[in-house]
Every structure is written in structure tokens, then in C-alpha cells.
Simulated assay, not measured.
Amino acid sequence: MTQKTAIITGGGAGIGRGLVLHFAGSGWRVVALDCDEKALAELETLLPGSQILAIACDVGIEEDVIQAFRRIGNWTDAVHLLVNNAGIADPYCGPLEQLSLEKWRSWIDASLTAAFLCSREALSLLRAGAPSAIVNISSTRALQSEPDCFAYAAAKGGLCALTHAMAVSLGPQVRVNSVLPGWIETGPWQRADRRQDPAHSQQDRAQHPVGRVGRVEDIVEAVAWLAGESAGFVTGQEIVVDGGMTRRMIYAE
């Protein structure tokens, strides 16, 4: 059997770090792309050099992505999974009338443009590894909003639209789905100098019908399923992983 290869953007910390360690632990070779060189260096100490290729890269910049995929093409001749996970974690951009075009573009480029660029550059490798999969990490903010999250919501909603557009165009060789995380605690999955233990109140937990805040492992398991043969009849879908929070009606007091 050919050893499978996954590419994880935003792989240095948070959900991306969890994905890198999961797939590496399952015997895959993994490419981790991230802007944070310190986080990537820490990851490299955890895995054999033959199993991980860590590339410092701003996936919202076209030339960075092109150069990164040249390196990836020299490292492997086929890819079986691309996870477009990169993005700006903070969704709040302030009042609309104060939102500059530059700031707007920073959210759009970090998530939506990045997914387009990485998918485009990965496509020949994904076809070589077919049947293969792309999983876009969107957000429940694509479905509902809090105030002053315009650019983040637009980027994540665009990822959902990009998902079904790619699914109908890239099949049957490549399946494309999106995962929409809700509140996911990523504190324990940061690089060492930024790591934090979770501290959730009863009110935090009560917002979720399942009774707890989400864990990185919850998203990892969803992505792993979408990447596997058991999801071979699933494409173009949005999988919400939020503990039921977006189904709960909250009334103002």
C-alpha cells in the first residue's frame, strides 16, 4: 500500500496542529503550512523528518503558495488529502463604517483566497492520489453572526460556496466537503509559549446541548471521517460540528 500524504494549512497550532499530529500518528506523511516558523519548528521536533515537511508560508499570497507547492512536488508525487484550515482566528473587525478595505482583504485572503490558491496548486497532486479529498474548515459564523464580524463571516460563507462549486467540478477523482466548527477550545494546542489550559464556566458549557465546549479532537475526527473510504459517497456537504449550539434558541433577558 502506498503511504498516504496530507497537506494541512494553518498546521502550526490549534485545529491544524491537531490534524497534523492525528494524521502523522495514523501513518500518513504530512505537509504543514503556516506563517508561524516557531510553531512549525516545534512540530518538527515531535515527528520524524521523513514524515513531516514543514513550510513557512503565507497561504494568502500567491507566490508563497506557488513556491511551497514546488517544494511539496519534490517531496511527494501524490497527495490524498488537502485541509484548507488556515485563517484569522479572531472574527471581530469592528464597526462596518470603520472597516478598511485592507483589513477586509486580510480576512478574505487568509481563509477564502488561501483555499482557492492551495486547492489550485494541489490539484495535480490530488488527482495523482485519487480517490482523494479536500476538506475546507469553515465556521458556524457562515450560518449565523454576532455583531462586527463582517469579513470573517463573508470569508467562511465563501468557503462553503467554494466547497460545493469544487465538488461538482473536481469529482469523481476528488471529493470536496467543509466542516463548520462552533466554539472549539484550542488553548492546549498552541505552541509551548502560548499554550493555555481550558477554563470554561457552567454558562459556557450550558450554551451547548451536549453540555461542553468543543475540543480540537472533535474537528479532527470529522475531518478524518471525510478523508476516509467510509465517506466515499459524501461530497459537496457542510458538516456542522458545534455541540448543537447553533440549534439552541437564546432569548435576550
Results as ranks from 00 to 15, higher is better:
7 I>D: 10
7 I>F: 06
12 G>K: 02
15 I>H: 07
17 R>G: 04
20 V>A: 01
21 L>F: 02
22 H>G: 07
23 F>H: 02
24 A>P: 06
25 G>E: 08
26 S>H: 12
27 G>F: 09
28 W>I: 06
30 V>I: 01
33 L>S: 07
34 D>N: 13
35 C>L: 13
40 L>I: 01
41 A>D: 14
47 L>T: 10
48 P>H: 05
49 G>F: 02
51 Q>A: 11
52 I>N: 01
53 L>Y: 05
55 I>R: 12
56 A>I: 04
59 V>I: 14
60 G>N: 03
62 E>H: 09
64 D>R: 07
64 D>E: 13
67 Q>Y: 09
70 R>K: 11
71 R>H: 09
71 R>M: 08
72 I>T: 06
73 G>C: 15
74 N>A: 15
80 H>E: 08
80 H>W: 07
81 L>W: 01
84 N>A: 14
86 A>E: 02
88 I>P: 01
90 D>E: 11
90 D>L: 10
97 E>T: 06
98 Q>G: 12
98 Q>R: 13
100 S>M: 00
101 L>P: 04
104 W>L: 04
104 W>F: 07
104 W>N: 01
124 S>N: 15
125 L>Q: 08
129 G>R: 13
130 A>N: 11
136 N>L: 07
138 S>A: 15
140 T>R: 07
149 C>I: 10
149 C>Y: 02
150 F>S: 12
152 Y>P: 01
159 L>S: 05
159 L>M: 15
159 L>T: 07
160 C>T: 14
161 A>W: 03
161 A>G: 02
163 T>F: 01
165 A>D: 00
169 S>C: 00
173 Q>C: 00
179 V>W: 07
183 W>S: 14
188 P>S: 15
188 P>V: 06
194 R>F: 11
194 R>Y: 13
195 R>C: 09
195 R>S: 06
195 R>W: 08
199 A>K: 15
199 A>F: 08
203 Q>G: 02
205 R>Q: 13
209 P>R: 07
209 P>D: 06
216 V>N: 09
216 V>L: 04
229 E>K: 04
231 A>H: 05
234 V>Q: 12
237 Q>H: 14
241 V>F: 03
243 G>I: 07
245 M>C: 03
247 R>C: 04
250 I>E: 14
252 A>F: 07
